[in-house]
Design a protein around this nucleic acid. Structure first.
Lengths: 355, 355
DNA sequence: GTGAAAGCGCTAACAG
DNA sequence: CTGTTAGCGCTTTCAC
């Protein structure tokens, strides 16, 4: 098994270990002749390197750790995919961890990533407050950027989407499509996305002169199952709102499902919107109107920020990218036609400050 | 930012570094008094360990690498989730890599995992033949088990589902539901799942006296988009089969979508089946009849095999678990009633041999 | 039960 | 350009 070391290659090529290291890593120029001998010796012996030893010596792993709340949530997997793609282009690897929505598990992952000497950490914290100390602690030791969600009151970098803007797009669209009352189904208020989306919802409802009710604000979790249950509650509750605004696509898909089972027609009886624009959003029936996040852009920005933090450190940046409205079949009741053009372009850099 | 080492802890606790190591890892007993001092010193200094150094010394990382063809395929993410769960119970970590269906990327990941000295590798190879050499090479150096898919002609451990049995369940069900002809939509024949499922399909079609045609066997990729396109081809091709058997749920969901767009009723005009039973299978309309794979069981078996390989080495085992039929709305045309009970229990250990 | 010392495999000085 | 030397931070004999 895994035996052959640089020393054996050196012996076979009749050079020093240092030369082998240089020839193989290309850190410094080596004569053609020796280069050839080393390469040959390495392949003959099946040398494959030991990045553990290399990492110890260089105190660099070329690896970044990423922690997401749930690996089965399509939104996060596509984010992971984008991040990994960007990283791969720079020859770095991603160490992926799933916190399964549990702050304790998340804390463990963070600890382990630090012990593994990753060069930086990208995290979407699972909890708005309980994740705070671990995230803050990690950020004090190495470059860390929060993605999508963020914990309250930390001074680390963050990249995500402008949730207020997202809610504005959604509610203006619904309002224009005739909705005058709306319910909001989300996860329990344990993270920033949830809080910002709810705040945005309330603000826009008020601004547009729409109505909502306390019983129409349902907080559970980001899952299809919760979307189903919440919608059942809504349907059982008597009067139905004109629209059900869901805090993510999974919830919205559950809502759609319940409506179909109960014989409620979408969008004619009730309009439904999602958030994230996961792949399945356009595959359900009716296809889901939702907010699209610029995932590749978010990923690129995140990695860039990580690199910045490596050299600069200390100065935190919050980057909010503009979301886009994607109109499909779950809104705009039949007979309706758009009164004015769509929104959803541009971008704004939120701030760049140190606390 | 500067990492605190065991030496600093030792100094502060006024003991040797060896003692600190022992106290912290619990490798050997240490007096209560010293134990306390070390723990205190460690936490006061914010010591967090360096598993790189530890790994180098112990030549053990307590990490296993996992390579999947696509992290956005829900089937694989749920498999990953199961595996990670099992591993976590033993205090080991998972290093996840996405080969993006590219043998070259896969090869790179394998190399990198070996260089990282992972204790073992779990892989679902992306290609039936092109993945072979890299997989074989890795397997010669460290414990490796293939999951779900496997490359042709290797002698490594494998855990998956009995695809022949899966096809038998599916086709007997369709036959009993009145289907006498069937099409098969799958990915291009570049991996074992595909091959086995296609072989199983043909065998059962023949055994049950059903018909198929060369133009009804459509090979593309495991994706919703391909399912859509293939089904369009089918619909444009004149006579329609009684059933469309899809090699995975994504393809089936695409097929469903095309049928709806084209006004073809499922299951009355054509029955459709999937494979894998991903979460979304029951959320589409009509809900998908499919084959369920015992994911937790597969994961547990895989990890067990990995541990076995660590100590034994050399003897390969192929473990095929029994799949189960899940009947939903996309089969059994209206007015139909089940003539006999369902199948899908039990399990069989395929073999245990060395090549 | 504890300490001293010898490396794990590699790379970064520092000569030559 | 190439070799020699000195560790990276930790675990583990081997003594006491």
């Amino acid at each position: 098994m895994q035996r052959v070391t640089i020393a054996q290659v050196a012996e076979r090529a009749e050079v020093s270990t240092a030369t082998v290291s240089r020839a193989l890593s290309g850190a410094r120029p080596v004569s053609d002749e020796i280069q050839r001998r080393v390469i040959a010796a390495a392949r003959e012996l099946g040398y494959s390197g030991n990045s553990i030893a290399s990492a110890l010596r260089r105190s660099r792993t070329d690896t970044v750790g990423m922690v997401v709340p749930s690996i089965t949530n399509p939104f996060f997997t596509s984010l992971v995919e984008s991040v990994e793609h960007v990283l791969q282009a720079e020859g770095r690897q991603l160490f992926l961890c799933d916190s399964r929505q549990e702050p304790e598990v998340e804390r463990g992952h963070l600890r382990s990533l630090m012990a593994r000497q990753v060069d930086g950490i990208i995290i979407s914290p699972c909890h708005g407050s309980e994740s705070a100390s671990a995230v803050q602690g990690a950020a004090e030791t190495l470059p860390l950027v929060q993605l999508d969600r963020r914990v309250a009151g930390t001074s680390t970098d963050w990249v995500g989407v402008d949730d207020h803007e997202g809610m504005r797009l959604l509610l203006e669209h619904l309002h224009a499509a005739g909705a005058r009352s709306a319910a909001f189904v989300s996860s329990a208020m344990t993270n920033s996305s949830t809080e910002l989306r709810l705040a945005g919802f309330k603000l826009q409802v008020e601004r547009l002169g729409m109505t909502t009710r306390a019983e129409w604000i349902l907080l559970g979790e980001y899952s299809v199952a919760w979307g189903r249950r919440a919608t059942e509650t809504l349907l059982d509750g008597g009067e139905l709102p004109d629209a059900i605004v869901c805090a993510d696509d999974l919830i919205a898909i559950g809502a759609l499902r319940t409506c179909r089972v109960r014989g409620v027609t979408v969008p004619d009886d009730v309009q439904i919107t999602g958030y994230d624009d996961i792949d399945f959003a356009e595959l359900v029936d009716p296809a889901l109107t939702t907010i699209s996040q610029p995932r590749d852009r978010i990923a690129a920005e995140t990695v860039r920020l990580l690199a910045t933090a490596e050299t600069w450190g200390g100065t935190a940046a919050h980057t909010a990218l503009a979301p886009a409205l994607v109109v499909r079949e779950s809104t705009e009741p039949s007979g309706w036609s758009p009164p004015y053009p769509r929104f959803g372009d541009g971008e704004h850099q939120e701030s760049s400050s140190r606390s």
